[in-house]
Simulated scan of single mutants.
Amino acid sequence: MKHLCGKTVVITGAAGGLGSALAKALAKEGCHLALIDINQQALTELTEKLQTPALRISYHVVNLCEKTEIDNLPAELMLVHPSIDVIINNAGMTLQKSVESHSMDDWQRVFSLNFWAAVSMCQTLLPFLRQQNSAHIVNLSSMAAFHGLPSQCSYSSSKAALQAYSESLRAELSGDGIGVSCIHPGAIQTNMIMATLDESDDMAQAHKNMVLAQRFGISPQAAAKQIVRGIKRNTRSMTIGVDAKLLKFASTALPRLTANLLARTYSKFIDT
C-alpha cells in the first residue's frame, strides 16, 4: 500500500497519545478516519481538530472488552464510510503487579483489551478488507513480547500472543493483498501507565517507571511516523526505540544474561 491518500483507516485507542498521533499523521496523508475509544470527550475533541471538508472523520465510543460492541461496529462504520482499507489495533493497557498479586480478573482485563479485542476487530472487519485490492492490518505489540518483563507478566504475555497471532495472520493473508504489520515499541511518552497506576504493587517504583518513560521514551509523533511508513512498505515487523532494539537483540543473542539482568533489577526494586 504505497499510497494512503483516500484510504479509510480504523484506529482503536484513538484518544490516547499514540492513537491521536496516528490519527493526525494519517489525516495529513489524506486518509478518512474512524476513531474508536471509550473516552467520548477526548474523541470529540480530536475529531473536531481533524475535521476538514475533504475528509470523512467519525468517532465511535466502544468498550473493546465487550465483543458485542465490536460486533455492532460494521453497521455503524458503514453509515459514514463506504469502505475500510486499514485497521490499526492500538488500544492497550498494562498492570505493574507481581505474578502473585495478579488476580484472574487482572489477567482477563489485560488479555481482553490487548489481545482479544484485536482478534475480534480483525475477525469482524476482515470481510470489508477483502473487498479492497489492497488493505492492511497493524497490531501494536510491544518490546515486552521479546522477553517477559517482571511486574508486567500479563502485559508481556498478551503482547507475545499478539505477535504470534500477527505472524499467523500475515501468512494466511499474504496471497489476498492484505498486509499485516506487528509493531514493537519501547517506551513511548504517553500516559498509558496512568490509567492503572493506583493498582500497582509498588506505587513509588511505578511513578519512577512513568517518569523514565516520559524522559527517555520516543515521542508518539515519531512513533506514528514510523508506523505510517511501515504501512506503506508492508513491513512485517517493526521495532521502535533504542530500548526495544536493545531488548530484542539481547533476548535473542544473550538470553541467559538478559534473564539474569532482569531478575537482578527486579530484586533491587523489591528490596528497596
Rank of each mutant, 00 (worst) to 15 (best):
I193S: 07
S174E: 09
V138D: 02
R170Q: 09
L129H: 03
G177P: 01
S154K: 05
Q205N: 15
I188A: 05
R130E: 13
A204V: 07
D176M: 15
A187S: 14
Q132T: 11
A145V: 05
M203G: 15
I183K: 04
A160Q: 06
Q163E: 14
A160V: 07
A160T: 06
S151Q: 13
S141W: 00
A144D: 06
M143F: 04
H136L: 07
V180I: 02
E199M: 13
G186D: 04
D201E: 11
M194C: 15
A161Y: 01
H147C: 14
D198Y: 05
I137S: 06
H136W: 05
E172A: 13
A171P: 07
Y165L: 15
M143R: 08
H184M: 14
Q163R: 06
D201M: 06
I178H: 03
N133G: 15
N139F: 01
L197C: 14
I183M: 12
E167A: 11
E199I: 03
M143I: 07
A204C: 12
S141Y: 00
S168Y: 01
H136K: 06
N191R: 05
L169F: 02
Y155T: 08
N133H: 12
G177Y: 02
I193C: 04
P185W: 05
L169A: 09
L197Y: 08
G148M: 13
N139V: 03
K159W: 03
Q163A: 13
T190D: 01
E167T: 11
E167V: 12
S157R: 05
A195Q: 09
M203P: 10
Q189N: 01
C182E: 04
A144S: 15
M192D: 11
T196Y: 08
G175K: 04
A187Q: 12
Y155N: 12
R130M: 12
S200N: 10
Q131T: 10
G175F: 03
I193A: 12
Q205I: 03
K159I: 08
A144F: 02
R130P: 03
A171M: 08
S134N: 11
M203D: 07
T196M: 10
S154V: 10
M143C: 11
Q205K: 12
L197I: 14
S168E: 00
Q189K: 07
H136G: 13
C182T: 13
P185F: 06
Q132S: 12
D198N: 12
Y155A: 12
Q131G: 05
S166P: 10
A171S: 14
S166K: 06
E172I: 05
N191W: 00
A144W: 02
I188H: 00
G177C: 07
S151L: 09
Q132F: 09
L169V: 02
L129G: 10
A161G: 13
Q131L: 14
A164R: 03
S174V: 04
V138C: 03
S157A: 15
N133V: 12
I188D: 01
V138A: 03
Q131E: 15
Y165P: 11
A161R: 01
S157K: 09
C153P: 10
S174R: 09
L162W: 01
C153L: 09
G148C: 15
E172G: 08
E172S: 14
P150S: 11
G148W: 05
D201N: 11
M143P: 07
S141H: 02
G175L: 09
D198Q: 10
V138Y: 00
G148E: 09
Q163M: 11
S181R: 01
D198E: 14
